[in-house]
Amino acid sequence: MDVNKYKKQTEVSEVIRVGAKLPSDIFVKKFNQYLFFDNDICTSDDLINATQFIICECFSPDSVASVFAYSDLHYLGALDTSDDWVVKITSLSTLMNDSGDYGGLIIIDKKQQWALVQPTPVEDGVLAIYSDKQVNKMPDILDENFIDCNTIREWLLEREERDKELVNKLGRDYLLEILKNYN
């Protein structure tokens, strides 16, 4: 029996509602900022780099996180802010794929200041942060890779044709449920 596996699963259950998916409230722990994404965190270099940039901007340069397979909460390894996240996340994803797991990731900061959850590569994911530094003050990073609740509220007003298309594609109820759970 791998005792560390169960210890790590406790680490996950302190932060994440295991099995919950968007638009439900995924987190047991409360954070003050939530950023949603629809690219695959395992393969999108831009998303991985943007996530690392946000974490480095919001937290000390010595932040370390644990990475888990979403499917069975298997501990995959540690992710340090000084690591090359593209190489590291791709490598951890390859380990999962080689074992037949094509699911998503859970990444949790050791101090539980931030967490990222994406159940599968084709599902939306969320990056949750507890920091005084406001990510919405980093517009280039936010606009290119993430959306926040303010963006969703704007879409729901359907002022632009693009907004109408996004609301229709994603579903008004889905977006309203996200606002209810992450506001």
Rank of each mutant, 00 (worst) to 15 (best):
E158H: 02
D83Q: 05
F37M: 08
Q118F: 00
L157I: 15
K137D: 08
G103M: 03
R162G: 15
D148G: 10
M138F: 10
M96E: 12
C58D: 05
L156K: 05
I129G: 09
A69E: 07
G19E: 06
T94G: 04
V67W: 01
W85D: 00
G125N: 05
D62E: 11
H74T: 15
L127I: 09
L166A: 07
E57Y: 11
D98V: 06
W85T: 02
T90I: 03
Y174A: 10
C42P: 05
V3R: 15
S99G: 07
V167I: 01
E123Q: 06
P61H: 13
V67H: 05
I54W: 04
D80I: 10
I107M: 11
I108K: 04
V126E: 01
K169F: 13
Y102G: 06
D98G: 04
L35C: 10
L142N: 10
L105S: 03
I141E: 06
V117G: 03
Q118R: 04
I41A: 03
I141M: 07
L95H: 09
G171Y: 01
A128M: 05
D72H: 07
N183I: 03
L73Y: 07
I48S: 00
N145T: 01
T120E: 10
K133N: 09
G100E: 03
V18N: 06
N97R: 14
K133C: 08
G125L: 04
S44N: 00
C42H: 10
V126A: 10
L116I: 01
V64K: 12
L73C: 09
N136K: 07
G100A: 01
L166W: 04
L166K: 05
P119R: 08
E161A: 14
I41G: 08
R162W: 15
T120Q: 12
V86I: 08
Q52A: 09
K7Q: 14
E154K: 14
M96F: 06
F31R: 09
L170M: 02
P23E: 11
T120D: 13
R159F: 11
N4T: 15
G171M: 04
E14P: 04
D109E: 08
E160Q: 13
Q118V: 00
K164E: 05
E165F: 12
V87Y: 15
P61D: 14
L166F: 02
L22V: 11
Y6M: 15
D83R: 04
G103K: 08
G77M: 03
L79Y: 06
N49C: 05
V86D: 02
W114T: 11
D83L: 07
V135N: 03
I178E: 02
V3K: 14
E57T: 13
A78K: 15
V87S: 15
F59T: 11
L156V: 03
N136P: 10
F68C: 09
G103P: 11
L95N: 11
D80L: 13
Q9W: 12
S91Q: 11
S44R: 00
I147Y: 05
A65N: 04
V86W: 05
L156C: 00
S91K: 14
Y75P: 03
F53H: 15
V3P: 14
G104E: 00
I141T: 06
D80W: 13
L116A: 01
T94Q: 13
V64R: 07
V122S: 15
L105A: 11
E154F: 12
